[in-house]
């Protein structure tokens, strides 16, 4: 079967078709940057973006979410009902979806976290190819631009068209629904794309290198420049640490227990009642974040938690660059 292509100017129509059945989430501009949001107007979505400010995790692990509700009068704790609507994530870069898979692993490993996993049901992912900018380094962490793992449809950009590759049953349904928008595709294969930003060495073996690098001077050097502001944690697609607190709704008997994105870079993260702090030095915290990405947690296929999206570098006001730090170790 010859493949099909979606002309660039038909994208709004393609989105309109999706919207009949799904909530559609895609990237839209915000000032100089981009954000993922639910698409209201099919014209606002773009397939042409570098990265969004926040990753897709905000849809599955919102910045603040209720995990338990309680009632002071009836003395009850209960889980919140999570309604899941079918969603299409339209125009997603492959490292972004890989990051979602890493989170899936984290929330399934050991005990399953229903509050997260429920929101991962009924998701359809439509991928899009991208040209890495100065910050992306996904190839170095095992995610070359042509990796299409996990997508229902993958759109590969060439000229003013996107080649449509349906890879699942859901994907084929969508391709069929788009039928009248598609044109025959004269483009085969995947574009060869080079990353400017690279680790000196591929991820294999990095974990061992970390073991020997506990007292490497780079941690202190990096810490000297770091604010511990937490931006790198919040914007990272695979950071999922959270804080939990109870809130009573004033003047009622009701309340909620909510979780909120937390940052291991903040001093308070490991502080216990009585004042002991278990990662008191800033360099301990810098090392901890990067170790979590490359050595401490690995998914079931032994893949690191950094997907090379470059957000933590792009958005660090102190210009701390995880690639430079890694390269100092390698």
């Amino acid at each position: 079967m010859a493949s099909k292509a979606l002309p660039k100017d038909k994208i709004p129509q393609a989105v309109s078709i999706l919207k009949k059945q799904y909530k559609v989430i895609g990237a839209t501009p915000k000032g100089k940057n981009f954000v993922f949001k639910e698409i209201e107007d099919p014209n606002e979505v773009t397939l042409d973006y570098n990265t969004t400010i926040l990753p897709l995790k905000k849809f599955f692990l919102p910045p603040r979410e209720v995990i338990v509700e309680f009632n002071l009068q009836s003395k009850e704790y209960r889980g919140e009902d999570i309604k899941v609507e079918p969603k299409v994530f339209f125009g997603i870069h492959n490292y972004e979806l890989q990051a979602v898979f890493r989170l899936d692993f984290a929330f399934k490993n050991g005990v399953s976290d229903e509050t997260y996993l429920k929101k991962r049901e009924k998701n359809v992912f439509i991928g899009v190819s991208y040209i890495p900018d100065d910050f992306h380094f996904s190839e170095s962490v095992g995610i070359p631009t042509d990796l299409k793992e996990g997508f229902d449809i993958f759109l590969t950009r060439y000229d003013s068209h996107y080649r449509v590759e349906a890879m699942t049953e859901k994907g084929r349904e969508i391709e069929n629904a788009w039928e009248e928008l598609l044109v025959p595709c004269d483009y085969e294969g995947d574009p060869v794309v080079h990353f400017k930003n690279k680790l000196k060495q591929s991820v294999a073996g990095i974990r061992e290198i970390f073991h020997g690098a506990y007292n490497h001077p780079i941690w202190k050097e990096t810490a000297r420049k770091c604010y511990s502001c937490g931006t790198c944690n919040l914007v990272c697609p695979t950071c999922y640490c959270f804080d939990v607190s109870d809130e009573v709704i004033l003047g009622t008997d009701k309340g909620v227990r909510a979780r909120r994105w937390d940052s291991c870079q903040a001093l308070v993260f490991t502080k216990v009642a009585g004042g002991d702090v278990f990662r008191e030095k800033r360099y301990d915290r810098v090392r901890h974040r990067m170790s979590r990405k490359f050595a401490y947690i690995m998914d079931e296929k032994d893949r690191p938690f950094c997907v090379g999206c470059g957000r933590c570098v792009r958005q660090c006001t102190a210009d701390i660059n995880i690639v430079d730090v890694m390269n100092a170790l390698l």
Partner: peptide, 23 residues
């Protein structure tokens, strides 16, 4: 006990440093 950036990022604001404004 954490920074304003944490709340700013959670709101997905554009960072003012992107516009050369020191915050």
């Amino acid at each position: 006990e954490y920074s304003v950036c944490v709340e700013c990022k959670a709101k997905e604001n554009e960072c003012l440093y992107d516009y050369g404004i020191a915050c």
